[in-house]
């Protein structure tokens, strides 16, 4: 199926008003693995006939990593630039492919004049399923053992634990939980700008600790909802040489793959 990815600029030129803006994020735009997640989200949006648009080359980093690293100047510069673009297009509703963009746009842009209804892609998928716009039947993950790794910026930061799980349950798979899950979930190690630096000196990598916990459940799939968690969990699984048996997927990919989108 060919992807339809309209940009905001094209929509406006054609006199169309998209109902939702898909905020792709830097990982989703540039990281090879995360681009697959982006495409899965687009396929789902196309399948459910959601009128959406992306900013394309007008999108810029939300400033999340700068803010977490203490560079408030850079964060606010990014925020003001993005808010000018978003407000210029009179954007009302945003779906993000990344919990970090989600958190920043939702919680930190309002103080700087950016007020939007922001949802994470797992929440949108849940809404599409619940409203009947997207039909999901078991498919290729039927009976498979899946464990969900909670991204910190979706879970603890914004109290969303159920949307990704309710979507996974639609796959007729076996959802098993790690001991440290939901509010007690262990970070993958990438948050707070750690993604962009070497870890401080310690006796173990955080992603190894987390992958070890997930692998102990002998799952077929480790699911997540964040491109950073994706990188960390994939590397963690490789560390234990388990990449042949255990796949790491974003929730959006699970849905897209299950439905052969």
């Amino acid at each position: 199926m060919e992807m339809k990815v309209p940009t905001m600029a094209e929509c406006i030129a054609n006199g169309e008003v998209p109902e939702i803006l898909f905020w792709v994020g830097c990982s989703g735009s540039f990281d090879d693995r995360a681009k697959k997640i982006t495409k899965a989200i687009v396929k789902i949006l196309n399948k459910a006939e959601v009128k959406f648009a992306v900013l394309g080359t007008e999108e810029s980093c939300t400033g999340d990593p700068a803010k977490r690293a203490g560079n408030e100047f850079l964060f606010q510069m990014q925020a003001f630039t993005n808010i000018q673009v978003l407000n210029g297009y009179e954007v009302k509703k945003i779906v993000t492919g990344c919990p970090h963009c989600f958190n920043t746009l939702k919680n930190e842009y309002p103080d700087l004049g950016g007020n939007y209804e922001v949802i994470h892609h797992t929440q949108l998928i849940q809404q599409l399923i619940d409203s009947g716009k997207l039909k999901v039947e078991g498919g290729s993950f039927k009976g498979k053992k899946i464990t969900f790794h909670d991204p910190c910026y979706l879970g603890r930061a914004n109290n969303e634990y159920e949307a990704p799980r309710s979507v996974i349950e639609k796959l007729d798979s076996e959802l098993t939980e790690m001991k440290r899950s939901r509010a007690n979930g262990l970070c993958c190690g990438a948050g707070g700008a750690q993604m962009f630096k070497e870890a401080e000196h310690g006796d173990k990598e955080v992603n190894v600790e987390r992958a070890e916990e997930a692998l102990a459940l002998n799952p077929n799939v480790i699911a997540t909802g964040c491109p950073f968690c994706m990188t960390m969990m994939t590397d963690g699984v490789k560390y234990f040489n388990k990449e042949a048996e255990v796949k790491v997927y974003d929730v959006a990919e699970l849905i897209a793959n299950a439905q052969d989108l």
Binding site: V5, V24, C26, S29, F30, T57, E59, Q78
Partner: peptide, 12 residues
């Protein structure tokens, strides 16, 4: 406009 060395023009 991205934490990595990619050009903004290549964003899409």
């Amino acid at each position: 406009g991205a934490p990595w060395q990619f050009g903004q023009a290549d964003r899409m």
